[in-house]
Design a protein around this nucleic acid. Structure first.
Lengths: 199, 199
DNA sequence: TTGTATGTTATACACTTGACTAATCCAAAT
DNA sequence: ATTTGGATTAGTCAAGTGTATAACATACAA
């Protein structure tokens, strides 16, 4: 029988080990035995607690995204000028790369491409992510007095989310060309918008 | 002994089968036996011709990217207004999704995240891709009379490439929210630039 | 015709996989 | 002191893995 996933040191050890292995070797190279070894427990416990690797990855996703969305939500909820939030968000882009945090995220996505259950869950996480961003961008765009007819919030949010995903993807592939230039361009543009508004 | 990869029906059958399986089940679920069955030949021949699955995937990548880059190059080289090229490029975004073409590309990338050899090759392909785009965008931006100080070609190209990658990634994950809005916004913007230029 | 290289099949080998079970441990409840 | 039941271990199992090799088939040059 599969046990309920209570607050359990072993379960936590499994989830931590899974994240480390996703970073180090990718989902395709994670087996129950390798995972158990990384977690420092017997390999039978994977089946005991999760029933299968698929279920385990779902548990990894749940814990991961809860943390991710919460951070993003808290960041945008702060009472600071929009450009500061933007810069914080862009700094995450670097931090999360160095920590391997993004690798976890994208490995789960690659896994989900061939696993309808996981894909469905990931799509819902993505919706939450978009909603958080839209909430933060709508007032900002209004403050910058952008023409929402020509530049709808939905389109802007999509642009921001997708180019961020693209940057992460490229960096995972070892490509960094043009990233700094793009981020600088956007930052300058935001600064110029701020300047216009003050006139 | 591994045989040289001459013009060989079996080799072609393997590469075709590999592309189909990348679309259908992803790289992690492709084994020599499954590949051989899909190709309709004995599974020992994978080792005979390629030596390993890793080498096979490299061969798949080589053939795939040659076709991809050539199409992109030919498209941008055509003697038509920039906005037509843009629209053609954006139509590829839909076509390649339906054909599964993008799935092949991204599966190879996900594989490359954990395989330095493949990653190195993919990075070089990306450079070629960027170069092709830069060549097409530089004159277009000049014609649109955009301030290259504020909007450098490198940054614009990075923005275009990354948001395209992001869109593909989201669609592979079953997410389509905001894509149409974004593409419409950009198209309208290009049309407005064309109008300004004619004044 | 013979000899040799090549393409292909069949099969064997050693090993790993995820799933599963029985046995044991151990702390808390009785 | 004993029972209980969840947590953990060790180990089994059939299926599947990549690799290797011998055997067969075919083609073509000597």
């Amino acid at each position: 029988m599969t046990r309920p996933l209570a607050n359990n040191d072993t379960v936590t050890a499994f989830l931590d080990a899974a994240e480390r292995l996703l970073i180090e070797v990718g989902y395709a190279n994670i087996t129950t035995r390798r995972l158990a070894e990384e977690a420092g427990v017997n390999h039978g416990l994977v089946h005991y607690y999760f029933g299968s690797m698929e279920q385990l990855f779902i548990a990894v996703l749940e814990r991961y995204t809860d943390r991710l969305i919460e951070r993003q939500r808290a960041m945008y909820a702060a009472e600071v000028p929009f450009i500061e939030k933007w810069r914080t968000a862009m700094s995450f882009l670097d931090e999360d790369r160095e920590s391997g945090y993004q690798k976890i995220w994208f490995e789960l996505q690659a896994l989900a491409w061939n696993q309808p259950d996981l894909r469905e869950r990931l799509a819902r996480v993505h919706d939450r992510w978009r909603a958080t961003l839209t909430e933060a961008f709508a007032p900002a765009l209004a403050a910058y007095e952008l023409d929402v007819k020509r530049f709808p919030v939905e389109a802007i949010v999509t642009l921001v989310v997708t180019f961020n995903e693209g940057i992460i993807l490229e960096r995972l592939g070892g490509v960094h060309t043009g990233h700094a230039e793009l981020l600088t361009m956007i930052d300058n543009w935001l600064v110029s918008l701020d300047a216009v508004r003050r006139d």
